[in-house]
Design a protein around this nucleic acid. Structure first.
Lengths: 210, 210
DNA sequence: ATTATCTATAGATCTATAGATAATGC
DNA sequence: ATTATCTATAGATCTATAGATAATGC
C-alpha cells in the first residue's frame, strides 16, 4: 500500500518518528480490514512493523487513540484512491458513475486486503456506541453525501430523471457497491464486481431522461 | 428471543442440559451480532446465562465448536423467522417479494440485536479462512439460492422479464437488503428500511412484463 | 536537550482443564 | 450410574506503564 500522510493528526517532530507513525498506521489500516479494529492487537502490529510493543505504544495514548488515528489514516487513503479519482471523471452523471467505478476498482486493486475499510469497520462497530463508531459513521455520512450531491447534480443537468429524489438514487447505487464489497471479500471472485457493475448500468440507464 | 431447537446438533440427554444448551446458544447468537463471534467471550456468556465459565464450557469442545454451534442455531432462527414466513406469502414474484419483506421485518423486529446474523458474522469472518467462515458462507449461499429460485420461478410464471438472468435479479434484491441491514443497525432509523423497500418496489416494477 | 525506542514487568483478561459435587434418568 | 455443573487454577494472551538507552535536531 502507498504511504498517505494524514494531515489532520499531530506529527512527530523527528523524522524517524514520522516514518514509524506512517508505517504503523499503514499496517493498522490494512490489518483492521482483516482482523477488525478490535482484533488488531498491539503485539501483532509491533511484530508486523518490526518494533517493540512499547516502542509502538509510545505513539498513541491508548488503544482507542490508535483506532481513531487508524480511521483517519484510512479516510485519507480512501480519499486519495477513490474520491479524488472519481471527481477526475467529470461532473453530474459522469461523477456518479466515476465514484462507483473508482470504488469498485479500489476493491479489485485490493487497496485494503479486506475490501472497503469503512464497510468492514462500520459493520464491526455499528452496535458499539462510542467515539470509534462516531468517527466511522461520520466518514460514511460524508461518502453518502458525495453520492447524493453527484445524483442531484446529474438531475440538475437533466441527465437523469428527478422523478425520484437524489437520496434514493444514492441509496441504490451504494447498495450495489456494498454488495460488491461483501461478496468480493468473501469469495475473491471478480464476478461479484461484474454483477454490481451490470446492476449500476441497469439502474442508471433506467433513470436516463429520454 | 424465542427458543428454537436446532435439530442438526447433538442433544444433551438430560433435560436441564438441554435447556442450558439452548439458553447458551440463544445468548451467543444475540451477542455475536453485537460483539462478533470472536469478541464473544466465554466469561461474558457465562455471566449472561448465569452459569460458571466451566459449566458453560462443558457443553462445547472448544471456542470454535461453540462458534459453529452458534451459527447452526442462528440458521435455525433465520429459517423460522424469515425463510418459512417468506414462503407462506406465495410463489414466484410473491415469494421473492415475501422473502425480501420478511427479511426487512426481521430487522425491524430486532430478532437479533445486531441486525442480520449472517451479514454481521459474514463480514467478521470474510477474510479469515477456516471452518467458521465455511459454515457462514454455506448459509449465505443457501439464502442466495432461495432468492435465485424465487426469481427464476417468477420468470417461468411470466411475472417478470427473463431478459436478465435470475442471478442478477437476486443480486440486486440482496444488495438492497444488505444495505438496509448496514444502515439500520448503524442508525437505528426505520428510514433505512423504507429506502430499501422503495428500491425493491422500483426494481421489481421495472422488471414487470407489461 | 529533546524525542524515539527499548527492556522488563504489572495486572487484567481469556481459553481450557482437572477433579469434586449436585441433579437427573433408568 | 450417568450426566451436568461447580470451584480452583494453569498458562497464554493483551493493554499499559516505569525507567533506561539510542538517535535526531537546534
Amino acid at each position: 500500500m502507498n504511504h498517505h500522510a494524514d494531515t489532520s493528526e499531530p506529527r512527530p517532530t523527528r523524522s524517524d518518528g514520522r516514518r514509524s507513525r506512517i508505517a504503523i498506521l499503514d499496517a493498522a489500516a490494512a490489518l483492521a480490514t482483516v482482523d477488525g479494529l478490535e482484533g488488531l492487537s498491539i503485539g501483532d502490529l509491533a511484530v508486523r512493523t518490526g518494533m517493540s510493543k512499547s516502542g509502538l505504544y509510545a505513539h498513541f495514548k491508548s488503544k482507542q487513540d490508535l483506532q481513531i488515528a487508524t480511521i483517519d489514516h484510512a479516510a485519507a487513503i480512501f480519499d486519495a484512491e477513490v474520491v479524488r479519482p472519481g471527481h477526475a471523471r467529470g461532473e453530474g452523471l459522469a461523477l456518479l458513475r466515476g465514484l462507483a467505478e473508482t470504488f469498485l476498482d479500489h476493491l479489485e486493486r485490493r487497496v485494503f486486503p479486506g475490501g472497503c475499510f469503512f464497510a468492514a469497520v462500520g459493520s464491526e462497530f455499528d452496535s458499539r456506541p462510542g467515539q470509534v463508531k462516531e468517527r466511522v459513521f461520520e466518514f460514511i455520512t460524508t461518502w453518502m453525501a458525495e453520492l447524493v450531491a453527484a445524483a442531484a447534480q446529474a438531475q440538475a443537468r437533466g441527465e437523469i430523471t428527478d422523478a425520484i429524489d437524489a437520496e434514493q438514487v444514492a441509496w441504490e447505487v451504494d447498495a450495489l457497491l456494498l454488495m460488491a464489497h461483501a461478496a468480493f471479500v468473501m469469495t475473491a471472485d471478480p464476478a461479484a464486481l461484474e454483477r454490481s457493475r451490470i446492476g449500476l448500468v441497469r439502474l442508471l440507464d433506467g433513470l436516463a431522461v429520454r
